[in-house]
Structures are given as C-alpha cells and as structure tokens.
C-alpha cells in the first residue's frame, strides 16, 4: 500500500514538473509549480524528512509562489508598455521555434533517459544503513538539543548552516546588485482595502506564534530557524502588501541590524568562544542548548528580514531603481 502511494507520488511529481514546463500560459505554469512543490513536500514526508518537508512547502511552494505571483502581475498586459514587452518576448520565442528542433530534442530526451537510467543504477547500488545516523545519535546528548537534525545543523555542522545563512543574505545583495535595471513597469497598487487589512490583522499574530512554536520545537522535533523564518517573513510580506512596507517604516540601521543579526551574532559568538580557547562554533555542552536557541532565534529573524526585503525590493525595483542602492 505504502509502496503504491510512493509510486503515485513519484509519478505525480514528475508529471507536474513536466506540465509546469509545458503549460501554455504563465499563470498555469505558476500554479502547477505550486502543486509540484506540494508534491515534493509530500515526498519528503514519505521519506521521513519532516524538516525538509516543512521547508520545501514554506520556501518552494510558499515564498517562491509569492514571488512568482508577484512576477506574474508584471506580465499581465495591463499597461501598453508591458504588452509590447510580452509581444517582443513572444517574437523571440517564435523565431527560434521556426527552426527545426526535432533532432536536438530527440537527442536531449535520449540523453535524459540514459542519464536517469544510470542514475537509478547508481542509486540502486548504494548499500543500506549508510550515513552518520549512528554517530549523530551517540553524540546527541552532548549537543544541547534533542532533535538529531537540529543537532547536525546547529552544532555538528554549524559551519555549513552559518554559511547558508550567509547565502540567504547574499541572495538579497545579489538582487540589490541587479537593481539598476528597469525591465517592466508595474502599476502602483494602493492596497488599502478593508478585507486585506482584516486578513493581515488576523494572520499576523497567528503566523508569529506558529513561527515561534516551530523555532522552539526545533530543539526536540522537526522545526527550527529556517521554517520559523519563512513564517515570519510571511508577516513582513503581508504587511508590505497591506501598504505598510516594514523596511520603510523602521530606521535604516535597524533594518540592517535585522538583516545581519543572524549571520553576525552566529559568528561573533563563535569568535568570542574562540578567544576562550575553543574552536569556531564550539559550544560548551552545558550552555549549548541555550546558545543554540539564541542563535536560531536571531537567524530566524534575519531569514525573515531577508526574505521580506527580497520581496519588497523586487516589488520596488520596477518603480524607483535609484532608491534601492540607498537602502543597502
């Protein structure tokens, strides 16, 4: 029975992936992509990786979906300028389509099939019971947390996680770096209607509490900074859509502090403990639990801030390219 579910899920995921590529309209593509993200999240659940499932649902289906929907608005032919752009884009694609693509396509499909077959063969040959599960379990009591995934992410391999928090900040910087370009004009939407306000008022505390819960539960179960950060980012995005752009409302330094807190504190704490003779990211076992919770909380805040800022800046980019530089 469970094998059947797995097979259906696998076929569904691949089918949705293909459909999102092949869909005729961008709207379809985006919505099928949501569904694909959810199918993947379910697949992670089936694989027993609840942490990854939550992250996949929150980031791939949730946050990416919001970005895609936002981008979709730019493609809607509301202004004549956009229409021209869309037409131009169509032209580019149709020109390419006139050439004969049969041979390269057949070659591509054959190549992919071959690749998949060899991949399956390679994966099939992997022996069971590998991995570091046993040594993680052995060392778990010394890590300060009870959940093995959190122990790996925040203690055993804290260095990787620290760099990944940096990657999120870098994603934001990369978007700033593209700031000078003005590709589409976006109509200014004054989002002030009552319904939206009520939705925001209703959801903000719930999202906050749920995020805090995920953060705290990360100590002993699936959850943690990344999942909590995405939920908190949803607050920032809702506020932005509701006409209250968080980063414009708080002082500049505070915004920067929120963005860099996770990465900065993580590192500074490491440096301070290093000065006491430890290696980087080595926590005294007695305090490891508390320190990890603090690091995670600040990381979640920074992740939320970065994701909000990514959304806000993509939103502003089309309107005032010159302002973006000044917010960095």
């Amino acid at each position: 029975m469970s094998v059947l579910i797995d097979i259906i899920l696998a076929i569904l995921a691949i089918y949705l992936a293909f459909q999102s590529l092949l869909a005729k309209r961008l709207t379809q593509t985006v919505f099928i992509f949501f569904a694909f993200g959810l199918a993947l999240a379910l697949a992670w659940v089936r694989l027993g990786a609840i942490d990854v499932a939550i992250t996949e649902a929150a980031i791939a289906a949730g946050f990416m979906g919001v970005l895609f929907l936002d981008a979709l608005r730019d493609f809607s032919p509301r202004t004549s300028n956009n229409q021209e752009k869309t037409e131009a884009a169509k032209d580019i694609f149709s020109k390419k389509n006139t050439k004969s693509l049969l041979l390269p396509r057949v070659a591509l499909v054959l190549g992919l099939v071959l690749f998949l077959l060899i991949s399956l063969e390679a994966i099939w040959n992997i022996p069971d019971g590998g991995g570091l599960t046993v040594s993680v379990e052995t060392m778990l009591p010394e890590s300060g947390v009870e959940h093995p995934v959190t122990a790996v992410l925040l203690n055993f391999r804290a260095y990787d996680t620290w760099l990944e928090i940096g990657v999120i900040l870098l994603g934001l910087l990369a978007i700033f770096a593209t700031g000078g370009i003005k590709l589409y004009l976006k109509p200014d939407v004054p989002a002030q209607d009552i319904l939206l306000r009520q939705v925001i008022l209703f959801f903000t505390p719930i999202l906050f509490l749920f995020g805090a819960f995920l953060l705290y539960i990360g100590k002993s179960g699936p959850g943690g900074a990344f999942q909590a950060g995405v939920l908190w980012a949803a607050i920032g995005i809702l506020l932005h859509l509701g006409g209250k752009p968080v980063f414009s409302m708080i002082p500049r330094w505070l915004g920067q502090l929120l963005l860099t807190l996770g990465l900065g504190f993580f590192l500074l704490l490491g440096f301070i403990l290093m000065a006491g003779g430890a290696t980087l990211f080595e926590y005294p076992p007695a305090y490891a639990g508390v320190l990890i919770l603090i690091v995670e909380t600040l990381a979640a805040i920074s992740i939320a801030a970065a994701l909000t800022a990514i959304f806000a800046n993509l939103n502003q980019m089309q309107e005032k390219p010159n302002d973006i530089e000044s917010t960095t």
């Binding site: 570091l132 040594s135 993680v136 060392m139 203690n155 055993f156 391999r157 804290a158 260095y159 430890a278 290696t279 980087l280 990211f281 080595e282 926590y283």
Partner: peptide, 9 residues
C-alpha cells in the same frame, strides 16, 4: 570546527 572530529563534524 565545533570541536567535532570528522566524519561527524
């Protein structure tokens, strides 16, 4: 890093 010897760390 972290005082955890490879392969764990």
């Amino acid at each position: 890093l972290g005082g955890w010897e490879p392969p764990l760390g």
